[in-house]
Write a protein that binds this DNA or RNA. Structure first.
Ligand SMILES: [Mn+2]
Ligand SMILES: [Mn+2]
Ligand SMILES: [Zn+2]
Ligand SMILES: [Zn+2]
Lengths: 134, 134
DNA sequence: AAGCCTAATGAGATTCGTTATCAATAATTC
DNA sequence: GAATTATTGATAACGAATCTCATTAGGCTT
């Protein structure tokens, strides 16, 4: 049976405190900095569980790192993610949903799924990266 | 200046011979099996170059591995991929391109790029999975 | 054809994210 | 409280990708 541990709860809460996608390593690091003695393997396990249970969204960053974010369950949506700081904006786009379904149907594909993520530099990170163009 | 080597050409051709997305490692493996003494690092470098030059498409597999596929150069496009057999259809969608750019700009994000992939079951695999609904 | 310059190669080392081990711990049940 | 066993975590192990650097060879000049 599944047991409730303070470690799982700490990961759940740390995810919720963060507004963007974070890696398991950085989440572990911030937990340790905050005084928690939680182990790295436990953070990986908790995040994987949360993702399976639908309490977290996960995605592969451009360089293959797994990133996680607390997920408001229920509504399907996509994300606009800052490559630098992880700031994330939730995006709904019915037009994209319809497009994905129709393009699948046009080619005879069934049970369509889609991965739609937009990456960029958020306003703050854009200024930091190129102060000459505010 | 850029030099033409048989290694680059071997990678380009091996990519073209392959129907779907392949990893650098498996491409290197098949090249070696075919008798080529090409090195692994060279395969990685050639694939990265081909992707930059638009001659190859790349995507991150579910487990973070980079996969490559020969690409008809010139036009930016996305893919409709069969989850079962790997059959891939190239798709163009200017509306999605414009949407990705505008949604980034609306939120102050710069240097946008996007990941847009549609997965499903191709016609053949749909029939195989559910023969009662042809 | 021969030399020169240097981009490209590749075997091996290295990095780094992630997973496996396994003895110790602690959550749950009785 | 005792027993059971899921969970933890320090560490080792793994694997994809990159780096190092001595060597090779492409392209150009003479
Ligand atoms: Mn969607
Ligand atoms: Mn596109
Ligand atoms: Zn940012
Ligand atoms: Zn198929």
């Amino acid at each position: 049976m599944k047991r409730n541990t303070w470690q799982r709860e700490a990961v759940r809460q740390a995810l919720g405190d963060n507004e963007g996608f974070v890696s398991a390593q950085s989440l572990h690091s911030s937990l340790r900095v905050a005084g928690s003695p939680i182990g790295l393997a436990t953070v990986y396990r908790a995040l994987a569980d949360l993702a399976v249970e639908g309490e977290a969204d996960s995605l592969q960053s451009i360089d293959g790192e797994s990133l996680y974010r607390a997920c408001t369950p229920g509504q399907h949506h996509h994300h606009l993610i800052c490559r630098n700081c992880g700031l994330t904006v939730e995006i709904e786009a019915d037009a994209v949903e319809r497009w994905a379904k129709s393009v699948a149907a046009e080619h005879g594909f069934t049970q369509p799924n889609h991965v739609v993520d937009v990456f960029g530099l958020c306003a703050a990170c854009s200024v930091a990266a190129d102060p000459s163009r505010p």
